[in-house]
Design a binder for these strands. Structure first.
Length: 469
RNA sequence: GGCGCGUUCGUCUAGUGGCCUAGGACAUCACGUUCUCAACGUGAAUAUCAGGGGUUCGAAUCCCCUACGCGCUACCA
């Protein structure tokens, strides 16, 4: 507990550290939500570090997209490559000399060593280990190479990596603040690579140790998939003699089949949620619920409320299945909580490239239409089907209903929703049909915004026109 | 295979030794309202708390074992 007190005495600094290897992942937002909220609660700093050390998977505009995703959710960071800050640079590819320096320092301290093994040798080794059903891990071949031999190879310009020297025969005890103490047998931990042959660091050196230390991260919030490598990081911290941050491994989001949330089964891309008309606050609320529950059991709560209540140690260790249905329900709740103006802004933004819908939104009657639509939306995307009729062929009986309706509507002298409703009822009882058929006639769908109200808004002429088509 | 984490309704969960014959939410179904679809209201169904052993007067809650699920096991993060 000593460690915890120490950390709390320092200014809270938490980070989200995405890799620009694709479009922003909902999991990154999930992490950022806890980071951001915890930082705000403790008047700390939330910052972004871009982990672009994997050149093979690098995607050029991914970083830009990460920022716009963060902004969209209102989880804007204080320090980052785009904003700068006192601990920069915040892009790992610009910190290569730093990692290099610390890797070599670790070698000097005896906590790491040069390894000249070829990928071919490693591949053969793993194959052999697999055949023998032994753990596939590095056999420490270069761990005790004579100094002179190492010097010579380096001078010759041989390709090398630097590996972490894992102590032998030790019970490594690490602490995850959510789960408590965890024990690992050091003999089962690989002498992991810290610095790659291309001079780039791996996560184990750059992110988890050097950067988090140099950037004074106090609380590391990261996915559960990192738990197995925690002992490596702890060992490295110990070699350096650095004070460790507190570690929180958040439960991973899962697909309906329980595997790690993936593109194939779930929706992982932030842009998908944007395109489907989800509200950022609703998503955040839902995400918070995935690893945390409100002390009073509330399910709907604002970011502000979450910030005021959140404590990282209350996060749950159980990996939840991401339920899109519940998210949709929640999104609908958020839509219903908005005032007319707020909803209008969201809709105009969402449909900015859709002239058809935009025309409705910019019309005189838009407020009334929004009022009718609001309780019928689960996502912003639902709005279009409510206001833009579908192309549909009417059957013979449907045409008959349409004609009868037209005839009666034309006779109305006082055009309002009550008189329209009377006519609708007449038609329904004469033709002995359900109300849905009236909707089919007007909208091409068997459902829609309440007809008396919408027809009143449209006016007699327009209503008759629709039926004349 | 090895190591680690996890396990309460289909799903998200409440629950920290007696208030639990297990509560809430989503989804489902029914009813009410009704011009359709929603929204809203009421109600129903769904969990032998993974299984088995302990500890205890008493266990979903503590301990052990087993099973199952997931994660990791890369010069990815």
């Amino acid at each position: 507990m000593q460690g915890m007190d120490d950390q709390l005495n320092k200014k809270v600094r938490v980070r989200v550290a995405p890799s620009p290897t694709g479009y922003p992942h909902i999991g990154t937002i999930y992490q950022a939500l806890f980071d951001y909220s915890f930082a705000k609660k403790n008047s700390g700093t939330f910052f972004v570090r871009i982990e672009d050390t994997d050149r093979a998977r690098f995607v050029a505009d991914a970083e830009e997209k990460i920022y716009s995703a963060l902004d969209w959710f209102g989880l804007t960071e204080e320090e980052s490559p785009r904003k700068g800050g006192p601990f920069g640079p915040y892009r790992q590819s610009e910190r290569l000399d730093i990692y290099n320096k610390y890797a070599k320092e670790l070698v000097k301290k005896g906590g790491a060593y040069y390894c000249f093994c070829t990928k071919e040798r490693l591949a053969a080794l793993h194959e052999k280990q697999q055949k023998e059903k032994k753990p596939t891990m590095y056999d420490k071949f270069c761990r005790n190479l004579p100094k002179e031999e190492v010097e010579e190879k380096l001078k010759k310009g041989d390709s090398f990596v630097i590996r972490l020297k894992i102590p032998e025969n030790e019970d490594i005890v690490v602490r995850d603040e959510i789960r408590g103490e965890i024990h690992f047998d050091s003999n089962l931990i690989e002498d992991t690579i810290l610095l790659k042959a291309d001079g780039y660091p791996t996560y184990h050196l750059a992110s988890s140790v050097v950067d988090d230390h140099l950037m004074e991260t106090t609380h590391v919030v990261r996915g559960e998939e990192w738990l197995p490598s925690l002992p490596k990081h702890i060992i490295a911290y110990n070699y350096f003699g650095w004070k460790k941050p507190l570690f929180y491994h958040t439960p991973i989001l899962r697909n309906p089949d329980k595997s790690k949330l993936s593109k194939r089964q779930g929706h992982t891309s932030v842009s998908w949620y944007m395109e489907e008309g989800f509200l950022p606050n609703a998503i955040l609320n839902y995400l918070a619920l995935m690893a945390w529950s409100h002390p009073q059991g509330k399910e709907i709560f604002s970011l502000e409320e979450f910030i005021s209540l959140v404590d990282l140690k209350d996060l749950k260790p159980v990996a939840p299945i991401f339920d899109l249905e519940k998210l949709k329900w929640m999104n609908g709740e958020y839509i219903r909580m908005m005032n007319d103006k707020g909803l209008m802004i969201k809709l105009k933004e969402f449909y900015k490239n859709d002239p058809g819908v935009l025309k409705v939104l910019n019309s005189q009657e838009s407020d009334k239409i929004l009022g009718l639509a609001q309780s019928r939306l689960r996502t912003l995307k639902d709005f279009k089907d409510l206001v833009i009729p579908a192309e549909a062929e009417l059957s013979a009986p449907e045409k008959e209903v349409a004609n009868s309706l037209k005839e009666k509507l034309e006779k109305i002298t006082e055009w309002n929703k009550d008189s329209i409703l009377i006519v609708m009822r007449e038609v329904l009882s004469e033709k002995k049909t359900k109300g849905s058929i009236l909707y089919k006639v007007f909208t091409g769908r068997e459902k829609g915004l309440p007809l008396p109200e919408t027809l009143e808004i449209f006016g007699k002429e327009k209503a008759i026109n629709i039926l004349s088509k």
